[in-house]
Design a protein around this nucleic acid. Structure first.
Length: 287
DNA sequence: AGGCATGTTACAGG
DNA sequence: ACCTGTAACATGCC
């Protein structure tokens, strides 16, 4: 499910739900994730209050009152479910339903009728507990480039990096050390909006186009967040709500269909770049 | 049945 | 050193 917009959508609702709350109980159902869940998770987390819920790239960082951080990555299929009983509307429906679901890995209980569950079909996600002071230098966050929605991702930065690498522009946008948070879907969409061929080598990109690339990157990601993220396969927000940005896809998964750009009637093509499916319009992305 | 899938990481080879 | 392709991880969907 999760690239930057989906993780941000999750973060926003999660932070409303858990910030300021004390985690009374941790349950571990299945320790097998990308990294085996640390048995000590319980010890560090139980009886701590949630101070903040932040996002860095595709990672979620839950800050606790004991100066530890829960570092969470959703991998491809990680989901967080909110379970709240005694509410009049839909959330109560999810309560019993999701508790019995397959692929639950762990849960945090705030009180008898309020918990969150981490569920991950493909087990590519992980959860780690780190000292606050060690987070930035951790192997996961250490080499991350700027968040594309931050002020650091601007024309000069992109110009500088694009000129110094020989990758295809699509691989560049998916490379977390240059820009962090963009994956396959949004890389495709950003390049289409910017009329740039995904195979184009970064150093060959016209300098003139760089401000558009920066602008379009931010635009696509923000728009997706506004739509609640993309629900391909089965991404859902934490109380079970679907995102709608997939309706806005201009190229992703649109092989053979007509290009949606105004005045362009090209046919979307699917190719593989570094083994990842890539979609583009040969007519308006011939650059 | 086989190919494909939103992510990350390691390795081989050019 | 940089880049690409391949594979691995685990599971489900078409």
């Amino acid at each position: 499910m999760p690239e930057l917009p989906e993780v941000e959508v999750v973060r926003r609702s999660l932070s409303k739900f858990i910030n300021g709350q004390k985690i009374k109980k941790v349950h571990i159902f299945n320790r097998n994730l990308r990294y085996k869940i640390d048995k000590n998770l319980k010890i560090f987390v139980e009886n701590q209050k949630v101070i903040s819920t932040k996002r860095k790239s595709k990672y979620l960082l839950i800050e606790l009152s004991n100066n530890y951080i829960i570092l969470l990555h959703l991998g491809m299929t990680g989901k967080i479910f909110i379970l709240e009983k005694n509410t009049t509307h839909k959330t109560s429906f999810y309560y019993d339903n999701f508790f019995l679901k397959k692929h639950n890995h762990f849960s945090f209980e705030f009180n008898k009728s309020k918990k969150i569950i981490y569920n991950d079909v493909r087990k590519f996600g992980f959860v780690k507990i780190l000292k606050k002071s060690e987070v930035k230098s951790s192997s996961h966050l250490r080499f991350l480039g700027p968040d594309p929605l931050s002020g650091k991702f601007k024309n000069e930065y992109l110009k500088n990096k694009l000129s110094k690498t020989k990758k295809s522009v699509k691989n560049f946008f998916m490379d977390q050390k240059y820009v962090s948070g963009i994956g396959n879907i949004y890389a495709n969409e950003i390049l289409h909006l910017s009329s740039i061929n995904p195979r184009k080598k970064t150093f060959k990109i016209k300098k003139k186009l760089i401000p558009y690339l920066v602008k379009n990157t931010k635009l696509i990601l923000k728009k997706s967040i506004k739509y609640g993220g993309s629900s391909i396969k089965d991404f859902k927000g934490i109380s079970g709500k679907k995102g709608d940005f997939q309706e806005e896809f201009k190229v992703y998964e649109r092989e053979g269909l007509e290009c949606k750009k105004r005045g362009c009637n090209g046919k979307i093509k699917k190719i593989y770049i570094s083994n990842r499916s890539s979609f583009f319009c040969p007519k308006c992305q011939s650059n």
